[in-house]
Design a protein around this nucleic acid. Structure first.
Lengths: 222, 222
DNA sequence: GGGGCCATTAAGAAACCCTTAAGAACGGGA
DNA sequence: TCCCGTTCTTAAGGGTTTCTTAATGGCCCC
């Protein structure tokens, strides 16, 4: 298989030497995107799902701590390791309190950075549901194909897909799905609309229509 | 029969009013055990098998989410409905992601609770009928041979095949089949048409013609 | 060769689903 | 608070699938 299985890593580091250096160190193990200021970091972090982030404490535009706070406020729970030149304990506490998951002071050991990142990507890997060739991350509201990029879903899209995925091969009636995903309405056609959204975002073959009955998640044997 | 056929239900709810109230509501349909804190909930849940659990989100001792996570980590896959005062969507996602199967916000409607519990205790596995090398899923309107691809059927195709499969080796007359599958018509040739559809979709040998009499599935050995 | 019976194909009608669009509701940022 | 963008919800037309009917051709037995 030709798929790149490396986890994606967003590196936010303004130092023109250190940034590329870290990127080079880690590029064997991660697919790295490097951005050099806080605002771009935020838009990158929000723009697509990441497996892990490494964020510098002192950044132009938007401070690292503020960046992490903003992410967490948005409900992004991607694991973050924060880097800093400051080794003081209260700095560490502040970073972790803001929502960082780990912390390293410069200068740091490359091996230790690698180990800490492995620990982060291991322990914080969010549970996913397999749907044929797709993996649904209900917490991050994202779906990724084995063969393609990550796709972000809206809340309802995600809930609908998750509901169908609770029991592959089972056929769900529209009323059933409305009860669990769209309790605020009783109009079955809303399901059609969202099925359409999901098929457009993901793939036409993920959700099967059972004429006159409802919808079902295929099992990859089609 | 003297056996109590009611499913067993473990209710973990610390509210001194709501707990007994729910227990009373449901005791006609379930054998209920009520415990009032998370740690006891965990030991009860691990101590014996349950058919279904209702767990409060906020619990003393061990939070409801943590309780469910612990259960799932132990490999306990009993269906769980989580109750909460919090209606926020991300709370819902969090609960479901921790391993809950369904979710209700307080205050809740007693009837809806009953319906959701019935849905949880109902078997999700759809019955399949074996027809030679083929397996028919009447709800999903699909048929598959061993290791073969999934073949989708229309409603009438499926009903006809299911009708024949109710009694393999028995020969069904056209009139008989029309009565049970195509009540809206009285034209026997419609059966021929649908037999043809099935043979094309599945296999030429699944349905045997008994000249002058009708149709039959298999003949004992193929 | 004729007659009965079955297999196959086709086509109109009906039921149902897909797609698009637009207004409402929601939430974030200025 | 207001504005703007996203998401949710509703609605409706067009398109597809499915049902039903019917006609033709093949096969076998008489």
């Amino acid at each position: 298989m030709t798929t790149d299985a490396r986890p994606s890593l967003l590196l936010v580091e303004d130092d023109p030497v250190l940034g590329p250096l870290i990127a080079e160190l880690l590029e064997g193990d991660y697919r790295i995107s490097l951005v050099a200021d806080g605002r771009r970091g935020l838009s990158s972090a929000l723009g697509q799902p990441w497996d892990v982030m490494v964020i510098d404490r002192g950044l132009p535009g938007l401070d690292g701590i503020a960046l992490i706070s903003a992410l967490r406020a948005k409900g992004i729970s991607t694991p973050v390791l924060i880097l800093t030149a400051l080794g003081a304990t209260d700095e560490k506490v502040r970073g972790l309190d803001a929502g960082a998951n780990d912390y390293m002071s410069k200068p740091f050991d490359a091996g230790e950075l690698g180990a800490r990142l492995r620990a982060l990507t291991r322990s914080y890997t969010q549970p996913t549901v397999s749907i044929g060739d797709w993996e649904l991350n209900a917490v991050g509201r994202s779906v990724r194909s084995v063969y393609g990029p990550l796709v972000t879903l809206t809340a309802k899209e995600c809930e609908l897909l998750a509901a169908l995925a609770t029991d592959p091969d089972r056929v769900f009636s529209r009323d059933e799905l409305i009860g669990s995903v769209f309790p605020s309405t009783d109009q079955p056609s809303v399901i059609d609309t969202y099925v359409h959204h999901l098929r457009r975002k993901i793939s036409r073959n993920v959700i099967r229509t059972v004429h006159g009955v409802g919808y079902q998640i295929g099992d990859g044997h089609e």
